[in-house]
Design a protein around this nucleic acid. Structure first.
Lengths: 142, 142
DNA sequence: AAACTATATTATAATTATTCTAAACTATTG
DNA sequence: CAATAGTTTAGAATAATTATAATATAGTTT
């Protein structure tokens, strides 16, 4: 478990002011055993429930985007009406269970190394993400 | 180039009534040399420009979803504020150019076969999609 | 520590993509 | 050709996200 002062240092190091709100959000996001996936709404709800505190939705949006820009969060490429974020910033992939709409981490060594033979000229590969959609046998394909 | 009567047959075969609007949309989507990617907005604009005809937005949404359900279109998993569709329904991957926000097909044999060692128990793999985000060197990672 | 400046937070309005609704319309069937 | 089941439509409703502009706070300078 990280201490408040550690979050303060981390924020300051990346040029973000360690405000009350940002520290609360750090607590909810990073003071955990396991990484996890969330939507902005999930996060706002967590803050309310866990810390019994209200942070303006706008601030939650701002903070999540700031954290993403600094590399503390990743956004996950799923087609959905809302954006999903991940506190696991390591290189890894995802299963998406179409029955339950759940996103599940797929360990990187569960898939052989992906080698892109021909990249777009003049561009650099920023990320390679695999999304494996799964469902029970009787479901429609998406 | 496909003829109108061929679209009529195709629609009827899959239990969709071949209406004026659906045939127009077929023309725009499938009467081409190459497959392509689009958003609902792109499509509505194309209809207006190419056919000089106005189809209600609701109908465009309905039709695209109907076509997707029947397997004539694929939806692409990109995290974005809007949904992207693909007339290329074969198994393939994508590059996403973060500089231009463009989606580019990645030939299937540009990537070695992807082998998932351990799948979620009780579930069947419905699709495996790779999204390769690229950008010029000086861009931020997404 | 007061004053200053740059950055953050907030409630609320605005915007955008998408879905819903219910009335009018049309293709198919008997 | 009448019945009916499926479609289309404009516009309203909804939901996620972004913009706005006033207020508050953090860091810095005096």
């Amino acid at each position: 478990m990280l201490k408040n002062s550690q979050f303060i240092d981390k924020l300051r190091q990346s040029g973000l002011r360690p405000t009350k709100q940002r520290l609360k959000i750090c607590e909810v996001l990073f003071n955990r055993e396991k990484t996890f996936h969330f939507t902005i709404n999930d996060l706002a709800k967590s803050i309310l429930e866990k810390l019994n505190e209200k942070i303006s939705l706008a601030t939650v949006y701002n903070t999540v985007h700031a954290f993403k820009k600094k590399g503390y969060l990743k956004e996950i490429s799923i087609n959905s009406d809302k954006s999903y974020f991940d506190t696991n910033i390591t290189n890894h992939h995802h299963f998406f269970d179409e029955d339950t709409n759940q996103l599940i981490d797929c360990d990187n060594d569960n898939i052989e190394n992906i080698n892109i033979k021909n990249n777009i000229t003049g561009k650099k590969v920023k990320s390679v993400e695999v999304l494996i959609k799964v469902a029970s046998d009787n479901q429609n394909q998406n």
